[in-house]
Simulated scan of single mutants.
Amino acid sequence: MTQKLAIVTGAARGIGLATTKLFLDQGWLVAMVDRDAAELELVATDLAGATAFVCDVSIPDQVTATLAAIEAQFGRADALVNNAGVADFGPLEEHDFARWRRVMETNLDGVFLVSQAALALLKKCQGAIVNIASISGLRASTLRLAYGTSKAAVIHMTKQQAAELGEYGIRANCVCPGPVRTKLAMAVHSQEIIDAYHDAIPLNRYGSEQEIGEVICFLCSDKASYVTGQIIAADGGFESTGVGLPALRATKG
């Protein structure tokens, strides 16, 4: 089999689903991994070239079994996109250990477990790893003690992977999305929040799931063959503004 295969976790919706569709459009096969069996089966049914694998990336035995099944079916992995994640926000004083572990076991442990389990397949193909962190891993924000910390750890894990796996021809990079216009975000973001984000983002808008997917697919492609260990914020310039106040920004005209 010579057709390239991408493994995408958290593939049933959002950025993971958008990335899956972009890979398919480019002629790749995709192993779609998600713990939401019903939603995964629903979306995968209509995607030619995609195969659904139900797996909770935070559970070691499930990860081992899933990667074994992928190896048995495809015998290769040219790209791994560690996208699965959970967002559980709340004030710092409300972050008990249960909430901390709930976030860490998927956002951090899951990236570790799937990456380790996929290493043999990635070595065979000199594949690429793209980990999905967040702008919250690059700059602190309220209500994100566990979430932001988990994403900051993913950023550093990416650098560790790049440093150690380069000798096998494996590249590892990290994408940090800024505010993305997902159904979930639009359901919970008030107009006040939307306006505040627009004011703080130089491009004055949310990103789309497809725009994040385009960056991911580029990093997995041969066009990025000399790119590794990089942390790329796909955020409309949000991270670059630092603590600059929108009111102090020069206006047109």
Rank of each mutant, 00 (worst) to 15 (best):
Q126H: 14
A52T: 07
G237T: 04
T142W: 12
Q26N: 12
M1K: 11
I15Y: 03
V30Q: 00
A12Q: 10
I232Y: 13
L80S: 02
S190L: 01
C217P: 02
A98C: 06
A140V: 11
A247F: 12
A250D: 15
A52Q: 06
N107I: 08
L145F: 13
Q230T: 15
V130P: 01
F89T: 06
R181E: 14
L108I: 00
Y226I: 07
P202K: 03
N173F: 01
V63H: 02
S225Q: 12
G244D: 11
W100I: 07
A87C: 13
A52W: 07
V30M: 09
R101W: 09
A72S: 13
H156G: 01
E214K: 13
A152D: 06
L219A: 04
Q116S: 08
G236I: 01
V111W: 04
G148D: 10
G10M: 10
I7C: 04
W100S: 09
Q26G: 01
L113M: 07
G110N: 02
F97Q: 15
G148W: 08
V43P: 05
A200N: 15
L22F: 11
Q3V: 13
G178A: 04
A163H: 10
A233K: 09
V33M: 03
E192T: 10
C125R: 14
S141K: 12
H198N: 15
T2G: 12
K151F: 09
G178P: 05
A196F: 07
L40C: 03
V111G: 08
D109Q: 00
H198Q: 13
S225E: 13
T158W: 06
R13S: 15
Y206M: 09
G27R: 08
Q26D: 12
Q62H: 03
R181K: 13
Q191C: 09
A79V: 11
C217A: 15
I135S: 06
V33Y: 10
G27S: 01
T66G: 02
I15K: 05
I231N: 02
V215C: 15
D96K: 05
A162L: 08
S225R: 15
A153C: 09
A65I: 00
G85S: 05
D61P: 04
R205M: 01
C220H: 08
A250C: 12
G49N: 04
E105T: 09
G166N: 06
V130K: 04
V243K: 13
G137Y: 07
A72L: 07
A12I: 06
T241M: 15
A37P: 12
S221L: 03
A120H: 12
D195M: 05
P202D: 12
L108H: 06
E93T: 10
K123D: 08
L165A: 08
S190Q: 00
G75E: 05
T142M: 14
I59K: 12
A79K: 07
V175G: 01
D78I: 10
